[in-house]
Design a binder for these strands. Structure first.
Lengths: 231, 231
DNA sequence: CGTCTCTTTGAAACGCGTCAATGGCTGTGG
DNA sequence: CCACAGCCATTGACGCGTTTCAAAGAGACG
């Protein structure tokens, strides 16, 4: 049953069951507690991972301690595609946002698997390319949108990407602090706190400590496109 | 002689002369006037290019007309690596910053060449991966550095990457407007103009219309690391 | 039950965008 | 060859969104 999760991974697109099985059986599982670091930016990239359970937070930390969050990686999603490229080091740091399990392939094993299943290489490279495009979009948004729009958009995306539907709205699947949300859009935790407070009184979202539920994705999406007419 | 330029291209790393010749002879030249558009963001990616002469400006334009510049591509450098990945569309727009010549390979031809010379594929993918890493750095810088630092860093990079040494300093190799510089670091042409004016009186740079010479890369680099102590 | 992490809220300062108006190159056409 | 028309650059004043700093409250975990 649990295997279903990995079968849905973009990494396995276009591969038949036999290939998937061969690839999966070559993996070594990794178990992480919340806040465990799976890989550190700049470190030699040795292992390619696919998340089985839980979430990884991908981030970069600058010298002055400022952390920017790039994205969260959930079940079925890969991390460490650079291993396939032959590049030497991870471009960012991966931390478990909650208790997390991954499947890992060493560089040598992965190389062998990619030779046997060329489509696997294609899929991984394709992911890298998509993330490049995403990063470009991020640069564009950070430089041309206001903080309010960016926070709204971040929430919409977090809800859409791995959100858990509930009777009232969509729960964001993993714990997120105000601070992380700030790092995700390039602002401070104070500004995020103020925005969320306002949106909560307006009924757009509900939030508990480290948990956020999006009640009205539509109205949030509207905010993401044009700043609020301050009421 | 001119072939030397392409021989130095990262695309040809690890390929012998025979392979290079085979690849080069399959190319079709493209000639662009200043401001000609080679490829548009979102357009189906059909052709992979290597610049022979001149410079391409890679940018994205948002709906409201705001342009962000990602980088400039000079002689020997590739554009359109996504063609190798099989992705459908260009992630950004390429415009000739000045009269420019490129060599182009169609998707089909490139696919064939990459099969014959696997190292070619590796090289292209490796470039994509490097650009991803660069883009992540950009995201980080835009969200945590001040405008002054970013402009200074942009100048240092433009000078280092394809700058032309002169008796007094380093000329930036291609025409850059204040507006483009603004798009490169995510600010307005006004702020850029003010900063350049100040740096010019301080003797850090010299500038003519659309041309900038970096006189003191060191002092600029210092500004990039910590904001100026306003004098 | 205490400690640590996460969150809230206020007040003040400031960087930078925005708007407006002017001035200087450049190359194109009469 | 000169003059006009664009394009590019400069400079000032103003306002606003955000950051910064400070202080205190609330939830979670051992």
């Amino acid at each position: 049953m649990e295997q279903m999760i990995q079968d849905a991974s973009p990494i396995f697109a276009g591969l038949d069951d036999r290939a998937r099985l061969a690839i999966l059986s070559a993996a070594r599982p990794h178990v992480l507690k919340a806040r465990d670091v799976l890989a550190r930016e700049g470190e030699p990239a040795r292992t390619f991972h696919v998340v089985q359970l839980g979430h990884l937070k991908l981030s970069r930390v600058s010298l002055d301690g400022n952390e920017i969050v790039l994205r969260f990686v959930g079940p079925g999603e890969p991390f460490g595609g650079v291993v396939a490229v032959g590049d030497a080091t991870y471009p960012l740091t991966a931390t478990a946002a909650e208790p997390t399990r991954t499947l890992g392939w060493s560089r040598a094993v992965l190389e062998e698997l990619m030779s046997a299943h060329p489509r696997l290489r294609t899929n991984i490279v394709s992911q890298i390319s998509r993330h490049l495009s995403d990063a470009l979009t991020r640069v564009q948004e950070v430089t041309s949108d206001r903080v309010e729009q960016r926070v709204a958009r971040a929430l919409v995306r977090l809800a859409a990407h791995g959100g858990v539907p509930t009777p009232h709205g969509v729960d964001i699947a993993h714990p997120v602090t105000r601070d992380e949300l700030a790092g995700l859009v390039g602002t401070t935790l104070f500004t995020v706190s103020r925005l969320l407070a306002r949106w909560e009184t307006d009924g757009l979202i509900a939030s508990r400590r480290r948990r956020i539920t999006v009640l009205s994705p539509d109205r949030l999406a509207a905010l993401a496109e044009s700043p609020a007419n301050r009421s």
